[in-house]
Amino acid sequence: MKTISLCLGLLIAVPAVAQGMASDRADLAQRLSQADADGDGQVTRAEFVAYRAGQFARFDRNGDGFISDDDVPRLLAGRFAPRLQAMRQQFDTNHDGRISRDEFVNGPARGFDLADANHDNIVTAAEMKALNDKSKAIRGG
């Protein structure tokens, strides 16, 4: 009986996870498009880092130079806690519980690396399209 319950749980959870992954990829493709500073249809790693630097203030809502729990309004803390925790795991290299501007801007660029299929530090329009196609296939549309 436990095995049946586990299997049913996985059948319900897997599409949700897949759709979440597709949504993340679609968000990534959108962020990459926004990072195309010179409008040439491709994003260099330097453009992506500059875009990230510009986004820091969006997360550092209280302007103290760090992304931390203090930047999330109490009313929304529960909703954004998982996202902030994921950001901490990815960017907080000194493990002080907050993310500095340097940690955020120069931290891992997993999304860029995922999109940069040939690893030449440039995400081309074709690579962005491939990323979009993958997300649509996962979403089933």
Rank of each mutant, 00 (worst) to 15 (best):
I138N: 01
G20T: 08
P108L: 04
R110V: 03
M1W: 06
D133W: 00
Q34H: 08
L10I: 12
K136S: 14
V43R: 05
Q34K: 14
M1A: 13
A18I: 04
F80I: 05
Y51R: 13
Q34M: 10
G41N: 11
D38K: 09
D102K: 13
A137E: 10
F59E: 04
K134T: 06
T44C: 04
F112R: 03
E47R: 00
V49P: 03
R25H: 01
F56S: 13
R101P: 02
A117R: 14
F112K: 08
R88V: 01
D69P: 00
A126D: 15
R101A: 14
R139I: 00
A125Q: 10
L131E: 01
I67G: 11
G65E: 14
G140I: 02
I99K: 06
R61Y: 01
A18W: 04
H95M: 03
L11C: 15
G9H: 08
I122L: 15
F48D: 10
A125D: 15
G107P: 05
V123L: 08
I12K: 07
A126W: 00
L28D: 01
T124I: 08
D92M: 06
L10R: 08
R61D: 04
M21I: 00
R61A: 14
G65L: 09
K134A: 06
E127V: 05
R25M: 02
A18D: 04
R31Y: 04
D71W: 06
H95E: 14
S100P: 02
G9D: 09
A86L: 03
D38I: 00
L8I: 04
T3W: 07
D64P: 02
G39T: 01
P82T: 14
G140P: 06
R79F: 11
D113Q: 13
G141L: 05
L114G: 13
V105Q: 07
L76K: 12
L28Q: 06
Q42N: 13
V49R: 11
I4T: 14
G54W: 10
D116Q: 05
T93R: 12
R83G: 14
A53P: 02
L131R: 00
M128K: 12
Q89K: 11
A137M: 09
A115G: 09
Q42V: 02
V72Y: 05
F59G: 05
G97L: 03
P82K: 07
E103L: 03
Q85E: 15
L6C: 04
G78M: 10
G54L: 13
A125K: 12
G97S: 09
Q42W: 01
A26F: 09
D24K: 08
I122F: 07
D60E: 13
Q42D: 08
T3S: 15
L75Q: 15
P82R: 08
R110L: 06
L10H: 09
A18H: 00
A115H: 02
P15R: 01
E127L: 05
V14K: 06
